[in-house]
Design a protein around this nucleic acid. Sequence first.
DNA 1: AGATGATTTTTGTCAACCAAATTTTTAAAT
DNA 2: ATTTAAAAATTTGGTTGACAAAAATCATCT
Lengths: 239, 239
Amino acid sequence: MQQLFTPEKKEKISSLIIRQIRTAIMQGRLKPGEALPPEKELITQFGVSKHTLREALRALEGMGLIVIRRGAGGGPVVSRVDWETARDSFADFLHFQDFSLGHLSEVRRIIEPYIARRAAEIFTPEADAELLALHAECRRLYDEGESLVGAEAEIMFHVLLGKHAGNPVLWVILDFVNNMLAEAKRKMKPGGDFCLMVLNGHQRIVDAVLARDPDGAERWMREHILEVERELERLHAQA
Amino acid sequence: MQQLFTPEKKEKISSLIIRQIRTAIMQGRLKPGEALPPEKELITQFGVSKHTLREALRALEGMGLIVIRRGAGGGPVVSRVDWETARDSFADFLHFQDFSLGHLSEVRRIIEPYIARRAAEIFTPEADAELLALHAECRRLYDEGESLVGAEAEIMFHVLLGKHAGNPVLWVILDFVNNMLAEAKRKMKPGGDFCLMVLNGHQRIVDAVLARDPDGAERWMREHILEVERELERLHAQA
DNA sequence: AGATGATTTTTGTCAACCAAATTTTTAAAT
DNA sequence: ATTTAAAAATTTGGTTGACAAAAATCATCT
């Protein structure tokens, strides 16, 4: 038999407080840097106990929406949600999905050639210099025999290309995918030949970007991504 | 002068508990569906007060990592982080970045034509049926004079194409971008001509996918995205 | 003026209590 | 024996009060 009445949902008080504060921030009624009233006052404003209020504040802190400092003049302050927090949440979600290296690589295959093309089109001399510095760092790592693959500099090489495209949405997708992939790559412990392949791939992309050759940059990036993908699959099959 | 000693960081107890439980889940030592000990026992295990423990549990609940039921046999249970939670977190982050409709549209321009091509390549008869049903629903909305743009069915049309590609990473990107864009579109209240344009665009894509014509699907999707983008910019300029 | 210590503000933690929700058990009735 | 209803047990939800710890401010002494 069908339910006749709605289940009269009793939401937890702390959830109500969380939503109130969160929507106030989202509607711009509370801006980053602005301080919320201290605990004592919030307790009276919301009409709840200290414990209950603190649960709400702790949850908001976990979301990265506020930071709480203690001591005189302290208290909860609205803050910008940083990328680390958002990325963690997204990684938590993906942990329960069944996805593979291939899925991450497919996303790269779609986005990164476009990014490389844009870089060749719009890079400024300053961006060129950053790219060269990062590539030099990659080469140094290789020359000193350290594992290039999965290293911070190798991730940043890819992320940097997107950084100057001025699209934050694209940028975070790029950052996320490359970081997830790097984590997996580090576990595989690829050999020196793999690193050399990566380095050469990067070299061709750098050359094309600096030569302001969008077609070349796009093509070499695609080659690079595919090469890496093939090699990772081979390593994965071995293990 | 350089600091001589580390600042002896005193992390909050609840944060320590949060991290312990979270890493236990991430390392697979706690699986979805598995119940954690009840409050009473966790209090003794961690050696903290009820209040402190509950703050930690509340934060974990906010992350979507656990759900808490009360009553006998209840208590905290590990759960899969759902997409809603992760999406909210990502939206919170983007709220503080300065990004525009153009940035969202650029992502669509890159991804959706590829998705349409893949759909034409791999769609099964069941997927075809789903697509047709959704398109019929879109047409019904238009015929009844309701605003098609920003409607649930219009979002789902785009998301469905990616759903059957079997790449969860790509799928969530698609879902996120289309939902963000839809929210913005709803606020603009576009007219009936806009809706007709969208409907015709969808029609061409459906035809190409059903005809198993990857080139056509890709091309028409690109046209569709660009058309919508131009129109949105025009509306935005008016306001 | 500058250092030092006391005071104040504000969060962090703990403890004990009662209320509400939900399952399990028990008991009764058919 | 099966179904139904009441009672009990379990577990979280919420309140109050108290004290500790951190950090800024203010007063005091040199």
